[in-house]
C-alpha cells in the first residue's frame, strides 16, 4: 500500500462516518467537513507513530495536514535521508 492508501485506510477506520464519504487525496479534510480538529490530531498521532516522523510545533499546519496527499508529502520529505 502507498502512504496515501495507508492514511486513507486509517481515516476510514477511525473517523466516524468518513467511510461513506468519497474524497480525493488532495481534497481538504477540514474544509470538506470530513474530519474535525480532533480528528486531524488523531491522524497526526497515527502518522507520527506509523512512520516514525515528528511534527514540529509550527508544522501541524495547512501545508502538511490539509489533505491525505499533504500528510503523505510530509512523510516522504522526512523519510528522505
Amino acid at each position: 500500500m502507498s502512504i496515501e492508501q495507508e492514511i486513507r485506510a486509517y481515516i476510514l477506520e477511525n473517523i466516524p462516518g468518513a467511510q461513506n464519504l468519497s474524497f480525493q487525496d488532495e481534497e481538504s479534510l477540514a474544509g470538506g467537513g470530513i474530519v474535525d480538529s480532533q480528528g486531524i490530531i488523531q491522524i497526526v498521532s497515527f502518522v507520527e507513530q506509523k512512520y516514525g516522523v515528528k511534527f514540529g510545533d509550527q508544522e501541524i499546519n495547512e501545508e502538511n495536514c490539509a489533505s491525505v496527499a499533504s500528510f503523505a508529502r510530509f512523510v516522504r520529505k522526512r523519510q528522505t535521508p
Binding site: 481538504s28 477540514a30 474544509g31 474535525d36 480538529s37 480532533q38 486531524i40 490530531i41 511534527f55 510545533d57 509550527q58 508544522e59 501541524i60 499546519n61 495547512e62 495536514c65 490539509a66
Partner: peptide, 21 residues
C-alpha cells in the same frame, strides 16, 4: 476546556480550521 486549544503545538491547525470557511 478542550486541551488541544491550549496547546501551542496545535495553533496552526486551528488556524487551518477557522480559515477553511
Amino acid at each position: 476546556y478542550l486541551s488541544h486549544y491550549r496547546d501551542d503545538r496545535y495553533f496552526q491547525l486551528l488556524r487551518m480550521f477557522y480559515q477553511s470557511d
